[in-house]
Amino acid sequence: MCYFEQTRWPCGYWKWGNFREQCEKEYRTGETCGLKLVYSWQPAQGMCKICEQKCKKERRIYKMMNDISRWQREGNRRATIEKTMQDVNDIQCQINELLATHVERERTL
């Protein structure tokens, strides 16, 4: 039950910060008992790293979908459209994994 700082983002994501205070259960200097408690928390500005990655991937999907619609109007690009659609599906799976990680982290607090 040693005490640590914590950083929290508006989206609910958080991370542990620096060690602050040692509990009475651990007698060795510089060692922690393994249990973490929040000493204090600081709000963070902006988006967490997972939300930033998600936004980047969503912008990439938006660009790919615009490219696909343009290629469909131009014609004669069936293979390119199919490959890009597969890439969009792969990126969407990555976004779903990021969201699952984010939700799991929010629930652990």
Rank of each mutant, 00 (worst) to 15 (best):
C2Q: 03
C2G: 05
E5F: 04
T7E: 15
R8V: 09
R8K: 11
W9D: 03
W9H: 02
C11F: 05
C11S: 11
C11K: 01
G12P: 01
W14P: 01
K15A: 15
W16Y: 11
G17T: 14
G17Q: 09
N18V: 14
N18G: 12
F19G: 06
R20G: 12
E21P: 13
C23V: 07
E24N: 04
K25E: 14
K25R: 13
K25G: 10
Y27P: 13
C33Y: 02
G34S: 00
G34P: 02
L35T: 11
L35E: 12
L37D: 12
S40T: 10
W41D: 12
P43G: 13
A44G: 04
Q45P: 07
C48Q: 03
C48R: 02
K49T: 11
I50M: 05
I50R: 03
E52R: 03
K56P: 01
K56L: 10
K57P: 01
K57E: 04
R59V: 00
R60S: 05
R60C: 01
Y62P: 04
M64F: 08
M64C: 00
M64W: 11
M65L: 13
M65Q: 15
N66Q: 09
I68R: 02
S69N: 15
Q72H: 03
R73Y: 10
E74C: 00
G75W: 04
R78F: 10
I81S: 00
E82I: 04
E82H: 07
T84C: 02
T84S: 02
Q86K: 09
D87M: 08
V88K: 01
I91G: 00
Q92Y: 07
C93Q: 11
I95Y: 06
L98H: 00
L98R: 02
L98T: 00
L99T: 06
V103N: 07
E104I: 11
E106N: 14
E106I: 15
E106K: 15
E106T: 13
E106P: 11
L109I: 15
